[in-house]
């Protein structure tokens, strides 16, 4: 995934943040859920179009410096969530909103 891309949470995805820091994303269209660990939940929270993919990965790497591979894992998660439709590129999100 290109690190300069800006990603946004799809508007109709339900986010259930749990007390243990994990979260469940529920796609009401596909009727399926995707559980994220605490780092994944934090990554998801960053996806408001403010930071690029690379900047989000940098943030996570800085915040979770003691977690090995966190930058690579964050990039992989963002790519996976984008591919499965939970995240959309900000241009696409703006187009969808305008429609």
């Amino acid at each position: 995934m290109v690190e300069s891309v800006y990603l946004l949470q799809r508007a109709d995805i339900e986010t259930h943040i749990m007390p243990d820091g994990t979260c469940l994303l529920f796609d009401v269209v596909g009727n399926e859920g995707r559980a994220l660990n605490a780092a994944g939940a934090l990554t998801w929270d960053y996806c408001d179009g403010t930071l690029s993919v690379g900047e989000i990965a940098d943030e996570l790497a800085e915040l979770l410096a003691n977690v090995p591979q966190v930058r690579a894992d964050t990039l992989a998660l963002l790519a996976e969530l984008a591919q499965s439709g939970y995240l959309v590129t900000s241009e696409h999100a703006l187009t969808s909103t305008a429609q």
Partner: peptide, 8 residues
């Protein structure tokens, strides 16, 4: 399992 996995 995590609470999110449980909720899933």
């Amino acid at each position: 399992i995590t609470q999110a996995e449980c909720l899933g």
